Computed example of a mutant assay.
Amino acid sequence: MTSPTTPSEPPLDETLEEVLAGGARPPVGRYRLDLATGQWAWSDEVYVMHGFDPGQIVPTTPLMLSHKHPDDRARVDGLLRRAAETGQPFSSVHRIRDARGKTRTLAVTGQGRRDPATGRVTELFGYFIDVTESHREAAARDATASIQASAERRAVIEQAKGVLMVVYGIDEEAAFEQLRQASNLANIAVRDIAYSLVHLFSGPEVTVFPTREAIEEFLEKPIPPEEL
């Protein structure tokens, strides 16, 4: 396939930026779409991304859309239609089911080329990028971060419950109920109530364990973390 004229850099959406942020360089292939005929010209890499041998089929828009994941198909179709109308640079990340039944995650970037005589957009050109592995790694990073954040939230709540259990001589369930009631009265999330409590009464600068009166004063008028 003849390489198209190098386009100006299309804007990357946030998901595409994330999956391309690190790791090994993913496979990249070129494409060109003739808007008059609906036929695509693919580099060898794009055939492989779609599960075909290079030159095995004649790529068309209906065939390409048939491989899009059902949940992403309408969005990609709309993206291409808008690009065909405006010629503006675009980018998106979507899933496909290749000819072998494998689900892949592809990024597509591109822009339109206009006929100098009429000013009409006559073709789209750009790149497909197989970000399947990068996307999986990004999802794993997100999951790890989410698990870590959840563990941290649980930890601070456990610490706050411990303070209340010692001060009031109550059990774990009653301590959490104290936090929940303070949360409802102040309209502040339980985890934020817990964070403020731990910060104010269990921080490294605190040398004396808080009194019952100090705890009660806090629970009546909790301080949001951003005001500490």
Rank of each mutant, 00 (worst) to 15 (best):
M1G: 09
T2E: 14
S3W: 14
P4D: 03
T5H: 11
T5W: 09
T6K: 12
L12Q: 04
E14Y: 14
L16T: 02
E17N: 10
L20E: 02
A21K: 10
G22A: 15
G23H: 05
P26S: 10
V28P: 14
V28M: 11
R30S: 11
R30P: 01
R32T: 13
R32G: 12
L33T: 07
D34W: 08
A36H: 15
G38W: 14
Q39Y: 12
W40I: 12
W42L: 13
S43I: 14
E45F: 06
E45W: 05
Y47L: 09
Y47T: 10
M49K: 00
M49Y: 02
F52P: 05
F52N: 08
D53H: 05
P54N: 02
P54F: 05
G55A: 01
V58R: 14
T60N: 08
P62R: 07
M64L: 14
L65D: 09
H67I: 04
H69E: 11
P70C: 04
D72L: 06
D72W: 02
D72H: 12
D72A: 03
R75C: 04
V76H: 02
D77C: 07
G78A: 11
R82W: 05
R82C: 03
A84T: 07
A84C: 06
A84W: 01
E85S: 15
T86E: 14
G87Y: 12
Q88S: 13
S91P: 02
S92E: 07
H94V: 00
R97I: 09
D98M: 02
T103P: 01
T105P: 03
L106Q: 07
L106I: 12
A107V: 06
A107W: 03
R113C: 01
D115R: 03
P116N: 08
G119I: 01
R120C: 00
V121Y: 05
T122H: 08
T122R: 12
E123H: 14
E123T: 10
F125K: 00
I129A: 06
E133D: 10
E133H: 03
S134T: 04
S134Y: 02
R136W: 00
R136S: 03
A138E: 07
A140T: 09
A140R: 15
R141V: 09
D142F: 06
D142H: 14
A143K: 15
T144A: 15
T144V: 15
S146M: 11
I147S: 12
I147P: 13
A149P: 01
S150A: 15
E152G: 01
A155Q: 12
A155Y: 09
V156D: 01
I157L: 08
E158C: 08
K161T: 13
G162W: 13
V163D: 03
L164M: 11
M165T: 10
M165R: 15
V166G: 01
V167K: 06
V167H: 10
D171N: 14
E173D: 09
A174H: 11
A175Y: 06
A175G: 07
Q178R: 15
Q178K: 14
L179V: 02
A189P: 01
R191M: 05
I193G: 02
L197P: 13
H199G: 00
G203A: 14
G203I: 09
P204F: 10
E205S: 09
T211H: 08
R212I: 04
E213M: 05
L219P: 00
P222K: 08
P222V: 01
P222H: 01
I223S: 10
P224A: 11
P224L: 08
P225F: 11
E226C: 12
E226M: 06
E226L: 06
